[in-house]
Structures are given as structure tokens and as C-alpha cells.
Nucleic acid binder design. Sequence first.
DNA 1: GTTCCTAGGAACACAAAGGTAACTATTGCG
DNA 2: CGCAATAGTTACCTTTGTGTTCCTAGGAAC
Lengths: 115, 115
Amino acid sequence: MAQKSFEDYMECPFHLAMSVLEGRWKFAILYVLSARGTLRFKELERSVPGISTRMLTKELKHLESHGIVRRVPYATVPPKVEYSLTDIGISVSPVIDEISKWGEQYLASVDPSTS
Amino acid sequence: MAQKSFEDYMECPFHLAMSVLEGRWKFAILYVLSARGTLRFKELERSVPGISTRMLTKELKHLESHGIVRRVPYATVPPKVEYSLTDIGISVSPVIDEISKWGEQYLASVDPSTS
DNA sequence: GTTCCTAGGAACACAAAGGTAACTATTGCG
DNA sequence: CGCAATAGTTACCTTTGTGTTCCTAGGAAC
């Protein structure tokens, strides 16, 4: 299977989006940044249940390199780095909201007593 | 890291949804089923670019076991099996749509000449 | 008679994803 | 002094994901 280029994905907005947002942690990170605004690295680590330091840095780098997350480091000791969503990052919120909404519907369909 | 149970996810609709929809191919499969309705196995395989037979069967089984996809086999030769979305599966469409919309916005933000 | 078509299942192997532990630098606190 | 705290990085190892190949049944087309 040949590697897809950016140009290949451009044809289909859906696949373009998924090529950027795919992965086990990206939506979860965007979810907490969307809900809670600016967060420091360790705050994020504590807010995304189960993620490891390594994965968090990797995913944040990926999101930053795609312009979705903003990274603002401070030259203090101990170090302080703040992460927040960029404008295009904020525009992922409707996706997050729809996923949450669907989660509620799914829960209701699986366990009608909760609705 | 301990395995999360369904009950753990129930607290948060977002994480519940992601626990069901996570994976490289699930959104893509739902995308084509949502757009094209009922499809046979091979049609699906051809419609999801890059997926292998094995992954398609695995993902379809997963989605079927969660009540998102309906599987209707026919006792013909050659075999014929039709896949379609259930009601709760159809309700994923808004998520798909928002992802597509975001893809367009993202494309425009990366390459303003396209908007 | 030979070959093609479908909807997978089984076994095998490799690559990618992810976890864990150790390490850094500097300041503040007790 | 000794320890905690932050934001990572690196090396090493395990787990999972995914691809590949081979296989089936029986009618249809050649």
C-alpha cells in the first residue's frame, strides 16, 4: 500500500481531517483543551486518563506541527509550558461536541434506563 | 494501566463514544456506509481505500457487535452479505459531517487558495 | 473442463504504537 | 543538605495492529 500524500487527501475533506486527527489520543487531548482552555504539560498529563508522558509529547508535537495546538514555553524554573488551541484547533470543537452527543445516544440505546 | 470497563466510560459520553469508534478504519467504514447506504462486503472493501480483507472483517464484526452495523447474509452462491447502518449507526452521521466540515476548514487554513 | 467470483477464516510475520524507567537542570522548601 | 517539582528526552521492551498468503463452495461464463 503506497503512502498517501497530502494531495491525495485534499480531494476528500473527511480523509484529510482523519489523516490529521487519527490516533488513540488526539481527540482526547483536543477534548480537554477544548473544555478547559490553556493547560500546562503536567495538567494535560493528569487530565488525559491513561496517557504516558511520551505519548503526550508526541501527540502535542504532532498537533503543534499541524497548527492545531499552540505551545508557549516560559524560561522559568521549574519549566512551564502552556498549551492551548489555535483558531483552527478551536474549530474542532463541533466535532468533539457531536462525538459527545452521540456517546449519550449510544448509552441510551445500550442502557435505556439512563435516558 | 488497568483495563477500563464499560462502567468507567459511562461517566463520560465522549470517552464512551471514542471507546467504540476508535481505530484506524471505523470512521472510514461508517463514512462510506453513511454516504452510500447498503453495501456488500467486496463493495465496502473497494470503497475504503487501503483496507485489507482481514481488517474489514474485524472492524465490521466489532461494529456489528456494538449494534452499529447490520449484517444480512444470503445463502447464495457466490455468497452475498449486505452491510448497512442500524439506527444508532445512522446517528453517527452528524459526527462524520462535522469531521468533513472541519477538513474543509483545515484545508482552507493550510492552503487559502482553495477557499 | 477450467477459471472466476464472493465472503470470509486461519496461520504467520513484521512494523508501528505504546509503556516503563532512568536522567537532566534549577529553584524552593524544610 | 536532601527532596520535590516541571517538561521533557532517550533507550529498551512489549503489545497491538496490520498485511500476506492460502483455503473453501458451487454456480456462471468461456
